[in-house]
Simulated scan of single mutants.
Amino acid sequence: METFIKASLQSLFQTIAQTQTKAELHQAFMMEVGQYFAAKRRSLYFLDQLPSINDSSPLMLKKALSLDHNPVLRYLVQKHAAVHDEVILPPGVWQTICPRADHGHVMVGPIISQGQLVGGIAVTRHRQDPKFTAENLADLNALCLHVSTRLAVLQTQPAPIQFKDDCLTPREAQIAKLVAQGMTNKEIGAELWITENSVKQALKRMFRKLKVSSRAEMVAQLVS
């Protein structure tokens, strides 16, 4: 049983490492998280995407996002650490705070960027299901660390280039993207497993097609 749990956790780590966008984390990663923790509900959220709270907001939503009403959320915001309800509350008290049956047990963990809380991972179980354990909490902490690290990497990567012109061949498009990343002809050749001279000749053809005379001019014309 222990080997299976470790393999499953490693699989989640690999899924995180392979994601390219926040959307991919939502689509692929969170389904696996729900299964891993045997959760009734699961969510990955970012604070800048949460709905704004106003007078017309549902009362349940107001309470869920209120630091005064929700001690689990308050702990997450103050400590930047994963927590489940029975870490900070006596058994059964959480159910009096949140009466929803499918939120009978709740566990949340932080997503951190540059020292700031930017989001979280939340999983819940039905009140009749087993409560979350210390091992669950440790696993969620590990997953949050991997998600935070992956997001930091994604934020430093150049945005994918969107071409205005479709006159380039697939190989020329690859070269153009690498040029936009600041690579030299030698580096591009090594990346694409072609000679430096092949890169030079390809760039000459691309310059003629686009009627430009420099790498910077080519990139400026291609990037939307």
Rank of each mutant, 00 (worst) to 15 (best):
residue 122 A to H: 01
residue 162 Q to I: 11
residue 136 N to E: 03
residue 124 T to M: 09
residue 171 R to K: 10
residue 166 D to N: 14
residue 162 Q to P: 02
residue 116 Q to T: 12
residue 141 N to Y: 01
residue 119 G to V: 09
residue 163 F to S: 11
residue 95 Q to S: 10
residue 177 K to N: 08
residue 102 D to S: 05
residue 67 L to G: 04
residue 135 E to V: 15
residue 94 W to P: 06
residue 59 L to Y: 04
residue 66 S to G: 07
residue 121 I to H: 09
residue 88 I to P: 00
residue 125 R to N: 03
residue 128 Q to T: 12
residue 135 E to G: 05
residue 148 S to G: 10
residue 125 R to C: 08
residue 102 D to N: 07
residue 80 H to K: 15
residue 162 Q to T: 11
residue 170 P to G: 01
residue 171 R to Y: 01
residue 132 F to T: 01
residue 172 E to Q: 13
residue 167 C to D: 12
residue 166 D to H: 12
residue 64 A to Y: 03
residue 169 T to M: 06
residue 184 T to C: 05
residue 114 Q to L: 15
residue 147 V to E: 07
residue 73 L to K: 07
residue 140 L to H: 00
residue 129 D to G: 02
residue 80 H to T: 11
residue 152 A to L: 11
residue 103 H to G: 02
residue 151 L to Q: 08
residue 134 A to R: 03
residue 156 T to E: 15
residue 142 A to G: 07
residue 96 T to S: 14
residue 139 D to A: 15
residue 58 P to G: 00
residue 139 D to P: 02
residue 100 R to T: 08
residue 88 I to V: 14
residue 114 Q to N: 15
residue 87 V to Q: 13
residue 62 K to R: 06
residue 125 R to V: 04
residue 69 H to K: 11
residue 150 R to H: 08
residue 100 R to N: 10
residue 177 K to F: 00
residue 73 L to C: 05
residue 144 C to F: 00
residue 73 L to D: 04
residue 93 V to N: 03
residue 105 H to Y: 10
residue 135 E to Q: 14
residue 86 E to H: 10
residue 164 K to Y: 05
residue 120 G to V: 10
